[in-house]
Design a protein around this nucleic acid. Structure first.
Length: 603
RNA sequence: GGGGUGGUAGUUAAGUCGGUUAUAACGCCGGCCUGUCACGCCGGAGGCCGCGGGUUCGAGUCCCGUCCACCCCGCCA
């Protein structure tokens, strides 16, 4: 019998004082060797933990001899006896009460010196970690994150199964429908000249499933989007996609609240209070400058546009004249701790969102302002701003004056920055919130064809009270959608809507979007056809698994909760994808590449 | 498409005003060590300074270009 065929008796994280005296077999990787010439200590690691193994010359000479050649990351098996460590316990390890005195050692495989240490906190260039992802994945934080990811999915499945949602798969290779997120394209070999698109979401298919009578559907599904990537955006990502017939917003909210409660209870043992608070899109933007506010802290924004209209400070008055906004962020009691240098450094901070500057004022006794521009403002204006923002002595007010988008982006950034700086973020706290009443339509950038585009997607139902506005192009921007986002700690973790199921409403929305009947047929004919035969009212939601797990695992990036993520340019640094196709493959597909071959990097 | 940060030994970093042989720590290799757990002590090896070009008597350092990674704006119905 070999050690391998006998099998391991325990994992490397489970032996305790109570096991002392038993014979055990442990398999794992060498985390660390400490060779004292006599006793040789090995920290043996697997995904469950670390156990100290000791080899002694007097106990088993051959094993002791062999232990001398062990190096980091050798994969080994050990037979031995569990001994108490007596007064040599290591309180830092769960298994620190005991050690295994080895009587037999099998080296399953050797390891070259790894390019970086397999430790919890390594400070290694991420590119290197990604190109040696298998080693990176041996590290405890990634092991933990991927386990939590599986735990999250298990918890979600348990709720959905209890509630009789049916898991149904939908195609990845779908019809190419330009508009919305850019699709990855897959050329067809059997029909040269045509392409499939990789599904950016199962949206249309899940609506078809509703029409087919599967009144409660879910799928844990990969989605593909060929856009620019970020720390929280990858070319392929996973959604928990849910749709149900006869749904109302309230039912969807209740379901997600139940799902999240179960997930947090099971994975983190944290109770979430339900129902979650709600905030309209309009309020969110007004008070926090973003539709995904982090509500773990306060620091609301205050719109003072009307107050400073025509005032003596040209930066303010000018922005208002140009149709922009002036908003303030009040930092209670911040005056003593924010130096002139801190405040003068703020413009650099907001430069990245396109803001040209940040005005600030320290509030002194009786509401007087200490500010570079203080003289240009009437006392009356200052007093009104004080009242509106609630500013008191010792506070600092930060002002942004610019177009609405820049003002909101910059103040949202500053709000975050200051919350961080003043330690206002309770890392133990979870702040879920529903963002409701999104606009249905938004203006597109000039020169992109149609003037309006759907905020969510073209099948999102308008608010019943606003349907009539769809007949007045000047009011398009006022139409509210039955769409909602679930935001957790400032991260958009889920989003969805009640869909349109009435052909006439769908037609009006298409018209507003500048999609004529012919285009509608060409793009979405198969959905519209399904809607001719008694479509049920329906709606749903999609949860961003990667983002949710990122929050739960406390990770800074999606890359830390995905086993094999891609770089910001969409490269898989492990496999080298994407790579040039060979000529024969392209010929078979009837595809020719016009771009010059990539020069490749040596970085 | 745009703005920013970075790339020097296996790893993380230092490298001044352009000047002799490019430093340090960790890791690695060899030796010693029977209670370590950030083991210790002694010795050693290890470099296309991302890549290409330019300026210069001389470039890790200055200039231009380029590649890669990361952060952000746009984009992500």
């Amino acid at each position: 019998m070999t050690l391998l065929s006998e099998g391991r008796t325990h994992d490397c994280g489970e032996l305790r004082e109570a096991d002392v005296g038993s014979e055990v077999r442990l398999f794992g990787w060498v985390q660390k060797r400490r060779d004292h010439g006599g006793a040789v200590f090995i920290d043996l690691r697997d995904r469950y933990g670390l156990t100290q193994v000791v080899f002694r010359p007097d106990a088993e000479a051959a094993s002791h001899e062999a232990a001398g050649e062990l190096r980091s990351e050798f994969c080994i098996g050990v037979r031995g006896r569990v001994d108490s460590r007596g007064d040599k316990k290591n309180p830092k390890l769960p298994t620190g009460e005991i050690e295994v005195t080895a009587s037999e050692l099998t080296i399953f495989s050797r390891s070259e010196t790894p390019p970086f240490l397999i430790e919890d906190d390594i400070d290694t260039r991420e590119a290197l970690r990604l190109s040696h992802r298998t080693l990176d994945l041996r590290r405890a934080p990634l092991q933990r994150a991927l386990r939590q990811r599986a735990d999250v999915l298990r918890a979600v499945r348990s709720v959905l199964d209890e509630r009789r949602y049916l898991e149904i798969e939908t195609p990845f290779l779908v019809r190419n429908t330009p508009g919305g997120a850019r699709n990855f394209l897959v050329p067809s070999r059997l029909e040269r000249g045509s392409v499939y698109a990789l599904a950016e979401s199962p949206q249309i298919y899940k609506q078809l499933l509703m029409c087919a009578g599967f009144d409660r559907y879910y799928q844990i599904v990969r989605c593909f989007r060929d856009e620019d990537f970020r720390g929280d955006r990858q070319p392929e990502f996973t959604q928990i996609d849910i749709e149900q017939s006869f749904a109302t917003e309230e039912q969807i909210y209740e379901l997600i609240e139940r799902l999240m409660s179960r997930v947090f209870a099971q994975v983190l043992e944290v109770p979430l209070t339900t129902p979650f608070p709600r905030l309209t899109y309009e309020d969110a933007l007004a008070r926090f400058g973003t539709d995904k506010p982090d509500l773990r802290y306060e620091l609301p924004l205050c719109d003072v546009t009307e107050t400073v209209r025509g005032c003596g400070f040209r930066v303010f008055a000018g922005a208002v004249e140009r149709g922009g906004k002036v908003k303030a962020l009040r930092l209670p009691g911040a005056a003593p701790s924010l130096s002139r240098k801190d405040l003068d450094g703020l413009p650099a901070l907001v430069k990245e969102v396109g803001a040209k500057g940040v005005a600030y004022a320290r509030i002194q006794a009786e509401g007087a302002w200490q500010a570079p521009f203080a003289k240009t403002l009437d006392d009356e204006v200052k007093a009104r701003v004080n009242t509106e923002t609630g500013a008191e002595e010792g506070d600092v007010l930060l002002f942004l004056a610019d177009g609405a988008l820049v003002v909101n982006n910059a103040l949202s950034l500053l709000r975050q920055h200051m919350a961080d700086r003043f330690g206002l973020i309770d890392s133990e706290r979870w702040a879920p919130v529903w963002i409701t009443d999104f606009p249905l339509l938004e203006r597109t950038e000039a020169g992109q064809g149609s003037e309006w585009t759907a905020c969510h997607h073209p099948f999102t139902a308008p608010h019943p009270d606003d349907v009539e506005l769809l007949d007045d192009p000047t009011r398009y921007g006022d139409v509210r959608a039955r769409a909602y986002d679930f935001v957790l700690n400032g991260v958009e973790a889920a989003g969805g809507s009640i869909r349109i199921h009435q052909p006439d409403v769908q037609q009006r929305v298409f018209r507003a979007l500048g999609i004529d009947e012919e285009q509608a047929r060409a793009k979405f004919g198969f959905l519209l056809d399904a809607f001719r035969y008694g479509p049920p009212p329906h709606g749903g939601v999609a949860i961003g698994v990667d983002r949710l797990v990122m929050l739960i695992a406390g990770a800074q990036s999606l890359r830390d909760v995905m086993a094999f993520p891609k770089s910001q340019k969409g490269h898989d640094l492990l496999s080298g994808a994407p790579s040039p196709a060979d000529a024969a493959q392209l010929a078979e597909l009837g595809v020719s590449i016009t771009a010059p071959p990539p020069s490749g990097g040596d970085g």
